[in-house]
Write a protein that binds this DNA or RNA. Structure first.
Lengths: 181, 181
DNA sequence: CCGTAATTTCAGTAAAGAGTGAAACATGTG
DNA sequence: CACATGTTTCACTCTTTACTGAAATTACGG
């Protein structure tokens, strides 16, 4: 299966962006391909379209499945698995953020908690202890907020984002009296 | 200069996290060290403390300076540059998000705009065009929201995050009448 | 339950990225 | 302005990560 020019560039760019955010390039490209595709694709088709090894596709799809970014479907009269992804960018975003929260933020929080309870803490200066505490506080607040946001439907989430300006004016108004330049 | 146990583990963990988010490990470690340090550090001290090459420290500091995550200060009677970073996690977070917005999100938006204006677009199926458009819309809304959030003081930002739950209830209330389980 | 098609695993290879250290370059001091 | 101190550059090496392809495994149909 051949890619049209824009599709190809979209997929390449997506792979590049993935790489910058710590996602394997092949994984990101395959996901982009599934996102653009009008129908579910078999692993073979993916390998051929992106010119990567069949085994690479297999591993990458496994990764996407583990993130719940891809799911398996079947076609009448075809024994092969076919793969598809959500066509809703907002939903995809939610899944990715949720995944990184669980896999990266949560462990960091655990480590910080451990530090702050450690007996070794008395070897640190008060400033260091304060900054580690401040870091934990930051991650806790951010995590709680993300958790709340992720519970929303994509549509609601979009409204919240669009309301951003109003909300921050409101908050500023209630906490500072002077007009900000 | 020797690291105390917790400081060392904090720095190692931070380097690890940086690596997962597309930041060079040395850069992240140096930043963590500056964050924890009670005083500005000279490049030599950093190299010795983290056991990395002096040249590596030089390059990494340059990177941190370009991100505005470090700045140069001077000590009376010492010709060497000393480096420090903000001790405010919220401010650091803002700087990082702003940087990635400019360096990664903005170019992506430019590419998507280019795609949607390209004459090659007629070779794509309607579904593909729709999804590229939806992607652009998503990035635009998210970017606008981030821009708005970044204009806030850390303190205000924190209040907004803590209000997260209320805000989403409010929005949900105004858009859907039925109570959500 | 045998044979075939599809998939996955994994050891090895290739590519990318990070880190080093010698040498060049600055900067400032006596 | 020469020397010393401090900094940066860059070609090379080392490490890590990604990718491949052959072989093993699994799943299915007759």
């Amino acid at each position: 299966m051949n890619l049209t020019p824009i599709s190809e560039r979209f997929i390449l760019h997506w792979g590049e962006m993935g790489a910058r955010w710590g996602v394997n390039r092949s994984v990101a490209q395959i996901h982009a391909l599934l996102f653009l595709s009008d129908r579910p694709l078999a692993a073979d088709e993916i390998a051929e379209t992106l010119s990567v090894a069949r085994s690479n596709v297999s591993m990458s799809l496994k990764e996407l499945l583990s993130w719940r970014l891809a799911k398996i479907t079947h076609q009448m009269g075809d024994r092969r698995d076919h793969f598809e992804t959500s066509k809703d960018v907002w939903e995809l975003f939610k899944i990715i953020v949720e995944g990184r929260k669980q896999r990266e933020v949560a462990p960091t929080l655990a480590v910080l908690n451990e530090f702050l309870e450690s007996t070794d803490l008395d070897q640190e200066t008060p400033g260091v202890v304060a900054r580690i505490g401040q870091t934990r506080e930051f991650i806790q607040v951010l995590t709680a907020w993300i958790t709340e946001m992720l519970r929303q439907e994509p549509e609601t989430l979009m409204k919240i984002l669009k309301m951003g300006a109003k909300v921050s004016n409101l908050v500023r108004g209630t906490t500072e009296e002077k007009a900000q330049q």
